[in-house]
Computed example of a mutant assay.
Amino acid sequence: MAEESPTSQNCPLSGKPGDLGWNLAMVLRGYQSRFETAVDGMPGGIRGYQVLSTVTYRNPSNQQALAAHLGIDRTVMTYLIDDLVKAGVVERIPDPADRRSRKIIATDHGREVLTTYEKRVADVEAELLAGFNSADIGTLDTLLRRLALDVHRAQPGSSPCEAVDHLQ
């Protein structure tokens, strides 16, 4: 029987300190590769999908708020939106609250494109979670959402994109 280290006694999870990071990284890698496949053909790939989804469902007030929400650098966001505008899935309109800034909205075509990609993303998420029953999936969703919100509150300026970039 393996001896327990003094530090593992303080670890709130089963396993050794650091196992949480390894587990999260493996899940993220598995998810990211499936997500990339699901959004193949979407201008901007994963980030393009996230922008289109965010402007459709969260209605950020302007381009700067959109960039902050997704943790994408302003400069990168500008080029990404340029590509999405060229593809006809979003458009820039004057921000009603500040005509100097731009609000990004989905076009009718963009909402159709999003529906198509959402089905593909849902399929790969179902594939990833195939080993779980619906109760386990509900619990996992609740706990991950709570953990993500706790981390976001503690580090509001942190970028999920940077975290993914560091994995590669």
Score class of each variant (00 low, 15 high):
Ile93Val: 15
Leu144Tyr: 08
Cys11Ala: 14
Lys119Val: 04
Leu140Thr: 06
Gly88Met: 05
Leu147Pro: 00
Ser158Arg: 14
Ala130Ile: 10
Lys103Asp: 03
Trp22Gly: 03
Asn10Arg: 11
Ile72Asn: 03
Arg34Ser: 08
Glu127Phe: 03
Ile104His: 07
Val89Cys: 06
Gly71Ala: 09
Lys119Asp: 12
Pro60Met: 06
Thr142His: 15
Ile72Ser: 08
Arg146Ile: 04
Arg99Asn: 02
Pro156Val: 04
Ala68Ser: 13
Glu4Gly: 05
Ser33Ile: 10
Ser158His: 10
Asp150Gln: 14
Pro94Thr: 12
Pro12Met: 11
Gln32Ile: 09
Thr54Ala: 15
Gln168Gly: 14
Ile46Cys: 09
Cys161Lys: 06
Glu112Lys: 13
Ala38Ile: 07
Gly41Trp: 03
Glu3Ala: 11
Cys161Asp: 08
Asp108Cys: 00
Gln32Trp: 07
Val55His: 12
Ala148Met: 09
Ser134Trp: 02
Val164Pro: 00
Asp40Cys: 01
His69Lys: 11
Val164Gly: 00
Ser53Ile: 00
Leu114Ile: 07
Leu66Glu: 06
Asp108Leu: 03
Ala97Trp: 02
Arg99Glu: 11
Leu24Arg: 03
Val55Phe: 05
Ala67Met: 10
Arg120Asp: 01
Cys161Tyr: 06
Arg145Met: 07
Ala106Ser: 15
Leu140Glu: 01
Thr78Trp: 10
His69Gly: 14
Thr37Lys: 06
Leu140Asn: 01
Phe132Asp: 04
Tyr49Ile: 05
Gly44Gln: 05
Arg102Thr: 08
Ser14Tyr: 06
Thr115Val: 08
His166Asp: 13
Thr142Trp: 09
Ala87Trp: 02
Arg100Met: 12
Asn23Ala: 14
Gly21Asp: 09
Ala25Tyr: 01
Ala148Ser: 13
Ile137Phe: 01
Thr37Asn: 01
Pro43Ser: 02
Asp95Trp: 07
Lys119Cys: 01
Arg34Tyr: 02
Glu91Met: 10
Val151Ala: 14
Arg120Val: 07
Gln50Leu: 15
Arg145Pro: 00
Ser159Asp: 04
Asp19Ile: 06
Gln64Cys: 00
Gln32Cys: 00
